[in-house]
Design a protein around this nucleic acid. Structure first.
Length: 248
DNA sequence: AAATATTGCAACCGCCGGTTT
DNA sequence: CAAACCGGCGGTTGCAATATT
């Protein structure tokens, strides 16, 4: 039997749910392990990236505050492009986000300067970032758009994964990712995402030698059974009692 | 209203350093 | 001790959404 090719590209809601589930089972350290065990056909790297930049419950959503923007500018001038280091000073913000912000920021700054050169007397001489801070145009819509697959306000145009239902159903109830995150109840103050790992009750167990010798699937099945007294068939979302597990 | 340009951002890639085998 | 592996980092890209012509 040959290996299926590893999945790439945008994550679907289903993959997200699956990843969240397994990270909460096994913790957010052993990405290769999580990738294999989850049945997601992704690399550990890809899983980590998705988690760190998007799924982590400690993430702040929405626009950077002027204060944060100021901090980014300040720290960048101080440390250069050490994005992850800078991110550590902005709880809830990821290095990727900051990096993206900076690029945008620079682009605007450049544009402004070219304008100036061309003689169009533009605003204050202050080189301070704040001038360009608010990305004024379209801020609201952009904000809404990127607010984490906000299922309640899914834009009609919302191209991309039309095929993927952004909500997950169990029985009559519909859960969005937001709901799921809420249910996890991570304590905010401990959620400095860059420095904190997600605790897993079975993490210690997972790292014992004996367990590593076991077949992933068997191991997972066993753990699942332990957790919820319910055998699980295979690695497909449909067969998981995800929600009962996550919600209580 | 359609065509084209710009922007914003999620995700990939390659490299590097630390850890494990 | 060296080779293999893995995770983290920063740079870059691709594409959908939005703005402009």
């Amino acid at each position: 039997m040959e290996k299926e090719e590893v999945r790439k590209g945008p994550w679907t809601e289903q993959e997200d749910v699956q990843l969240v589930f397994y990270v909460n089972l096994f913790g957010d350290r052993r990405w290769d392990f999580v990738a294999k065990v989850s049945g997601l056909n992704r690399t550990g790297k890809s899983c980590r990236l998705r988690w760190v930049n998007y799924l982590h419950p400690g993430l702040k959503r929405g626009k950077m505050t002027p204060n944060e923007e100021r901090l980014v500018v300040e720290l960048q001038s101080k440390w250069g492009n050490r994005w992850s280091r800078i991110a550590r000073k902005l709880p809830g913000r990821t290095d990727n986000e900051i990096k993206n912000y900076w690029r945008t920021h620079m682009r605007k700054k450049k544009a402004q300067e070219t304008k100036k050169k061309k003689g169009i007397s533009s605003s204050s001489s202050s080189s301070s970032s704040s001038s360009s801070s608010s990305s004024s145009s379209s801020s609201k819509e952009a904000e809404e758009r990127r607010s984490f697959y906000d299922t309640t306000t899914t834009p009609g145009a919302g191209g991309e994964n039309k095929t993927d239902n952004l909500e997950v159903e169990e029985g009559n109830k519909v859960y969005s990712m937001d709901d799921i995150w809420k249910e996890f109840e991570f304590s905010e103050e401990n959620c400095a995402i860059t420095s904190q790992t997600v605790a897993s009750p079975i993490w210690d167990y997972c790292t014992t030698d004996s367990l590593w010798c076991m077949n992933y699937e068997e191991e997972t099945k066993m753990l699942m059974q332990q957790q919820q007294q319910q055998p699980m068939g295979d690695h497909h979302l449909q067969s998981f009692p995800f929600y009962s597990y996550m919600i209580g």
